[in-house]
Amino acid sequence: MVGSEGPLSDVYDLAMLDLDGVVYVGPDVVPGAAEAITAWRSRSRAVAFVTNNASRTPDRVSDHLCELGVAASVDDVVTSAQAVASLIRQRHGAGAAVAALGGEGLYAALAAEELTVVGVGEEAVAVVTGYGPQVVWSDIMQAAVRIRDGLPWFASNTDMTIPTAFGTAPGHGVLVETITRFSGVTPEVAGKPEPPLLEQTMRRRGSDAALMVGDRLDTDIAGGARVGVDTLLVLTGVTGLAELVAAAAEERPTYLSADLGGLLVAHPPVVTEGARSTCGGWSATVVDGALRVEGHGERDDWWRAASAASWDHLDRTGHTASVTEVEPPR
């Protein structure tokens, strides 16, 4: 984790924002998100809303954002469905017949790339799957058999969970894992953490200095790392202290903040000397395998110091620090 002397808006020209857990949670906007995005744009910085959710069309996503008070056009939205459709067209050309299994967002993206959508039992050059709550088991079975028998397979994303109004639920990654176990085949994936989605976003925006902003280590942060851009982790979604201290090297963010307000402020550096990491007024170390944090100061600085000390311990010992005896400041 590094520091920034000035606000991140002085360093980056594009914020690629994940949606679930970053801009909204379920039907509700994250407090302060709309204001932070407006302030970022007021500094002549661009925004792209980048989502692994392939079930909704970009216009539905942009309409939802506008309803929440976040200004968004269709062109601001980039989905994993669009990325996988573009990938298939690159491989097989316009007009290719594709057996599709997913939601309306996937079908619309395939049509926009001038691909011909057919049923899972029809003649096709490839199978493509994406999240779709109405997908039926008989179609999944038929697609799995065709994949096992050699038909190329593309997947929008591999997220294992998806937030819903009734709680965290199985995502498309569960289906991908099921088909892979049956068929022995791993799909070509377009969504984060694989590069196609973010690469398409940066090409569309013409960015020279993009920042990936997300709440998930395994998709958002790892995805940014794979395309060589810096990352900002926000704590409004699924990542808590237990997940953060156990992060592998490729899942560790460049910056960390409580919410999207982190786009607009400086980020104090973390100084690690020996086994101790300090940031602001906080000092963190791991003693007998357990994380200890002392001092006082800003909440974000607590998280930065705690993360750095835990990662140093993990890298040196191979063991994840216990966090049962610490509680982040409210």
Rank of each mutant, 00 (worst) to 15 (best):
V2T: 15
S4Q: 13
G6E: 15
S9C: 14
A15F: 15
D28E: 14
V30R: 03
A33L: 09
A33P: 08
A34Q: 14
A36P: 04
I37E: 02
I37H: 08
T38D: 14
W40T: 04
W40R: 08
R43V: 06
R45F: 08
A46E: 08
V47S: 01
A48G: 04
F49R: 02
N52P: 04
T57H: 09
D59L: 11
S62T: 06
H64Q: 12
E67W: 04
G69W: 11
V70E: 01
T79F: 11
A83F: 07
H92R: 02
G93V: 04
A100C: 05
L106D: 00
Y107F: 10
A108N: 01
A111H: 11
A111E: 14
A112W: 04
L115C: 06
V118P: 01
G121S: 13
A124W: 10
V125Y: 11
V125G: 11
T129W: 01
Y131I: 07
P133A: 12
Q134V: 10
M141K: 12
R146K: 14
R148V: 07
R148D: 06
D149S: 10
G150L: 13
L151M: 15
W153Y: 15
W153S: 02
D159N: 09
T168Q: 11
G171C: 04
V176R: 13
E177M: 13
E177P: 00
S183L: 14
V185A: 13
T186Y: 06
G191F: 05
E194W: 14
E194G: 08
P196N: 07
Q200E: 03
Q200N: 03
R205H: 08
A210P: 15
L211S: 04
M212D: 00
M212G: 02
L217D: 09
G224I: 01
D230M: 05
T231K: 05
T231Q: 02
L232I: 09
L244Y: 02
V245M: 05
V245P: 01
A248L: 13
L256S: 09
G261E: 10
G262I: 02
L263W: 08
E273V: 12
T278W: 05
W282C: 13
A290R: 10
R292A: 11
G295T: 06
D300W: 03
W302A: 07
A306T: 09
S307R: 03
D312E: 15
T317M: 14
G318E: 15
T320A: 08
T320P: 06
A321Y: 10
E327V: 13
